[in-house]
Design a protein around this nucleic acid. Sequence first.
DNA 1: CTGAAAGCGCTTACAG
DNA 2: CTGAAAGCGCTTACAG
Lengths: 338, 338
Amino acid sequence: MGVTIYDIAEQSGVSIATVSRVFNDNPRVSEVTRATVLEVAARLGYQPHVSARSLARRQTETVSAIVPMLTNYFYAEVLKGLQDRMNQTTFDLLVYSAPTLDEIEGQVEKALHRGRSAGVLLFSAPVEGELEKRLEASDLPVVLVDCYHANFDSISTDNRRGGEIAADYFLSRGAKAPAVLMANPHSVPASDRLDGFRSRMTAAGHPLPDSHIQVSSTDYHDGFNEEAGFQGMMALLESGCQTDAVFATSDVQAIGALEALRRSGVSVPDEMQVVGFDDLPIARYVGLTTLRQSMHEMGSRAFELLLDRMTKPAGAVTHTVFAPTLIKRQTTLEEVSE
Amino acid sequence: MGVTIYDIAEQSGVSIATVSRVFNDNPRVSEVTRATVLEVAARLGYQPHVSARSLARRQTETVSAIVPMLTNYFYAEVLKGLQDRMNQTTFDLLVYSAPTLDEIEGQVEKALHRGRSAGVLLFSAPVEGELEKRLEASDLPVVLVDCYHANFDSISTDNRRGGEIAADYFLSRGAKAPAVLMANPHSVPASDRLDGFRSRMTAAGHPLPDSHIQVSSTDYHDGFNEEAGFQGMMALLESGCQTDAVFATSDVQAIGALEALRRSGVSVPDEMQVVGFDDLPIARYVGLTTLRQSMHEMGSRAFELLLDRMTKPAGAVTHTVFAPTLIKRQTTLEEVSE
DNA sequence: CTGAAAGCGCTTACAG
DNA sequence: CTGAAAGCGCTTACAG
């Protein structure tokens, strides 16, 4: 079948050790033999066998990413950043998906499987209990993305800060009775966004009543979905509370809310201001004011953190936090120049 | 480091061959030794080494997918379908991205690398020239997704039919001067959609003038992006042509177009009807009439085709085509019950 | 600078 | 039902 190192050795008149050295850029090979080996290899279309190489080297060149759901734009974009950075290397990317909490452990188990990958990127997972133990027990490098644990490198957005910015912005624009469209409470990013928002409102003397917090009624994507935003907004409108501003914990929820407002004939931003979170490409096209996350950069940095950890397994644990930035558009402003 | 087959053999008092047989479900092992081997393995936390296994077996349990861009919802959803199906097996998924045509070959080369994967899923790639040769030369199973080549199994949406349905629908609703927001012409799916639409208009005695075809001005995602739809719609409005209906070759383009219409004060659907393609989750929330593709199912079927091909390398080549379905919403209808 | 040899951790005929 | 042995295709000290 495949051309092996033996074929090349034979046709080049050298030993397999020398052929191997050539392909490992070992300097202890004369220029002339290097050239002939390369020439023969090219002629025969030789490629080193991936498995044989990792077995002998005791190390792979693949990285595993475990994400809740590819169809969530946030994960797709972070993975894109990861891939773009990885393309500068020879690493390959294995992608596992774990939509629900109980699936995470199983996928982590796969990713951690002996000989499978050189490192693991775990997305948006609460690292505790069995999962925590499993991760601690492994000697593979692990980087957490969009979540946190003191003992592992992590990278995430400052979600709490995002909530604070949203609250401050509403306050500065004179909102009297803001509400929050909240994803599932067990989602750490969502909770942090809510906490930041709430703390700022309280500090400003406008504590957020529980009735102004609408938790996602549907679990899909952890409550980060259009339907949840739509239903939440509807419930808010029907409850009769005098809400004049809504902070949604994601853009997709905000978009569902905008549709609810449109159908209900509530004008945006006059009667209701809306702020989302993420800054999806589409946000611009529905004129959504939102908090932008640096998704692409999170991906590329995540890979670099993993590389660092491979090099220095015992180095100090590091936590990288990106500040979200407020992007103002028509759901809060009348006039916008873009 | 890791626990090997030797450790288990020793502690179980059997040979490594027997241990191996147990883990390969070989029936030629007595129940009692099987039990003790399993017990010892569990106690030691044994996992077969992935690379060693594939080297010895001369086959891997990973599949490679090469997609243009994860951030494109279509690909994310198809991959989701793929993963869901793969999760019923022990296969893992390697994901490569090739945003531009000239990157495809390089990524295909990686995926085809000796010992890397058991099969390749190639998305939306024009299989011709060097790429075609490379694929033909390989003995790995290949399945094309969202593209076509006579010699390889493929799976795709009947894009031409989608265009026809859109045209028929516009005609039935009395549109006088439809226009098309077209993605990049080198995109085969986009061309097919346009062709179907155009042929039907011509057949009905309303041939589509070139001035009514707005080609994407931006290359991002092959012209399948909001900005392209926005600019295209703007150009159409400014051209002064009496367009009253627009078929966009994707939902994202349609959404950009809707924004352009909103800003220009053109009412939808009264003055302008809009139809997209894909049926993204968001389509429902902007009330977009569109042609739905069975993305998830395409993914799962694609994997099954690959499995079939692994089993029967010489079996007849097969082409699976999904019919798109028209989903009617507010961008063409006044009243909709959802 | 180069080669012979051991080893990476499995699988799989071949005997028994 | 079980074991000894060869082999998968590399890498890497160890000699020279």
